[in-house]
Amino acid sequence: MELILAIGMGVLTGSGVWLLLRPRTFQVIIGLSLIGYGVNLFIFSMGRLRVNTPPVLQSGAVVNPADYADPIPQALVLTAIVIGFATTALFLVVLLVSRGLTGSDHVDGREPN
């Protein structure tokens, strides 16, 4: 499981960084999204990978904390997803405006000669 997750994060982040360095705005935004996914998985994995451990305690019963997953990274990742979504949407708007104003989808607003 660790291996799959690690490879997944690596592939997502690696592709993201490559796309981020490309000259087209659409590639940049996809790159940023992919990096966002990689980072979100990374935050999640910082709570340690374990199966069959819910993050929420059951009320009433006496509980053994070792049977439960760390809820904090899961809460953090939710926040990060929401914020990442909002900023990506905002970036998309700027990208469209740039395309409309300059007539080019190059990140510098003009085609290289």
Partner: peptide
């Protein structure tokens, strides 16, 4: 156009930095 271009770079740089922050 000048502001859009500078803003585009500014946003991309800061989004990448936010990922590093996380």
């Amino acid at each position: 156009p000048l502001r859009i271009k500078a803003g585009l770079h500014y946003i991309a740089v800061n989004l990448a930095a936010s990922s590093l922050f996380l």
